[in-house]
Amino acid sequence: MSLDKRLGQRFLPYGANYLDWSDMSELQYAIEQGVLFRYQTENESMASRLERRVGEELGAAHVLAVHNCTEALRLALVSTRPRAGDTVHIPAVTFVAVAGAVLATGLIPVPVDVDDHFALDTSLLPPDAQRVIVAHMEGAVSPLPDGVPYVIEDAAQALGASFPDGRRTGTRGYAGAFSFHHNKVLTSGEGGLLVTDDPAAWETMRCYHDHGSARQPGRYPTWNDDAYYGENFVTSEEVAAIQLQQFRHLDQVLGGLERHYGLALQELPDRPDIGLLPRSAGDAKISLRFRMESRELRDRAVARLTAQGIANWTLNKYLLPEHPVLKGRRSLYADGFPWNLAESHPRALSRDGFARTRDLLDRTLCVPLSPELAEAEQVVAAKGLRQALESL
């Protein structure tokens, strides 16, 4: 019998398992008020409540709720007032949305190779780098480069994680972007947050995300005298209400992940051909990351875990230099914009053409942890994983 059936457990990620109608007081209130647009009322909107709550939780001076993390990255880039065709250095291993956000802003993504833990290798950055996006992949806190004016943290998978100095991910760079996609620490299906301590940057972000003007609650629409064009990234009240419910469970989710991680460490098989990528104390421990001796062993592990109902995933699809958008410089514009502005820019930064990174990805396997399980159930899950790995 598969592990999910023995535990009566749905393989839903993290915050999704904490969605409960009886716990949805904010959503119920928003529905009862009949106001789902954040600027419709002069009272504090759900979106504003969410932003205030997030600022308090993360220690961020300014917070903006948007539709998704990709929009948050775009807003962060736009607020730097770039020139079309400027380069943005991004990790070579991350989700394609990072490159998409750069391209949609009229800028050129330059993949930078990663270290053994899939964090952007800051030693490869040129001394004149202006804009760098650092991704905290799999909840693992990545180091930030020094001396770069605009460091944007993609903390989509690392909500609640902390740097060694105690500051939360997303709050040390110029700006930080978070995701509430279904497969994230907390979820509203879709949704995003942007944080910054720069008041001028936040004002630009806030205006651009609603057609170029700063809105007055209860008096929509209004236009600034110095309005510029923008887009509509304004979140809705019902989505913000769900996110508020989720934020009440953030410490519970992170604590459950931490407990499951510790229990799993005690049960790992003693095999020299299966290693575990260590995690720092501040990581959001959303998964165990295994490094196998070979691609063949990794593939056997995938097959065995899948057959036994143990969720798992690999990371090969996140190698951006091999994604069609970057490899083929794909664009829907007739003139190839913005790639047509990139002739003099490097395609990627790597010492070996990403050979080492391909090998690491080929041998890496991730197994998610389940914070909602009781400790006894987490022990059962850890033992089931050990048995599956021992049987390879």
Rank of each mutant, 00 (worst) to 15 (best):
A97K: 13
A72S: 06
V102G: 06
V35P: 04
E44I: 06
F118M: 10
D86S: 15
N43E: 13
A60G: 03
D23N: 13
A60Y: 00
I108H: 04
D113S: 14
V35F: 09
T122Y: 12
Q28R: 12
S79L: 12
R83A: 07
E57R: 14
E71W: 09
Q40M: 00
Q40Y: 06
R74T: 12
E44K: 03
D116L: 03
N68P: 04
Y18R: 13
V98I: 08
D116P: 01
Y14L: 13
L58E: 04
V110M: 08
I108G: 00
P111Q: 11
T122R: 13
P111E: 09
H117F: 09
Y18G: 11
R10L: 14
Y14I: 04
F95P: 04
R83P: 10
T87W: 05
I108K: 02
A30Q: 02
V35D: 04
G100D: 14
V63N: 08
V110H: 06
T70Y: 00
N68S: 00
Y29F: 07
L36Q: 10
G55Y: 02
R49W: 05
E42I: 07
T70E: 15
L58C: 05
A119Y: 04
D113N: 14
E44M: 01
T87A: 15
L12K: 00
V63P: 10
V54D: 06
L124T: 06
A72E: 00
V112W: 01
S48H: 01
S79E: 11
Q28L: 04
P82F: 08
Y14E: 15
G34A: 08
R74N: 11
E51Y: 06
E51F: 00
L50C: 03
D115I: 06
E71T: 08
L7G: 10
L7P: 04
A92E: 05
Y39A: 05
P91I: 01
V93G: 12
A99G: 11
V102Y: 07
M24R: 11
G55L: 05
G8Q: 13
E57W: 14
D20Q: 07
I90T: 05
R53M: 14
T94S: 15
Y39H: 04
R49T: 12
L50T: 03
R81G: 02
Q33D: 02
T80E: 07
P82Q: 02
A119R: 08
L19S: 03
L107Y: 00
F118G: 05
Q33R: 05
F95G: 10
C69R: 12
R83H: 12
R83T: 11
A61Y: 05
L125E: 00
V63Q: 02
D86V: 12
T94I: 07
V63D: 04
E26A: 11
S45T: 02
T87G: 15
F37L: 05
G106S: 01
V54T: 11
S45G: 06
L120C: 03
A99H: 01
L103D: 09
E44W: 00
V54H: 08
E71V: 09
A47Y: 00
H62P: 09
A47S: 14
D121W: 02
Y39K: 01
R81L: 09
Y39F: 09
R10E: 14
D20S: 11
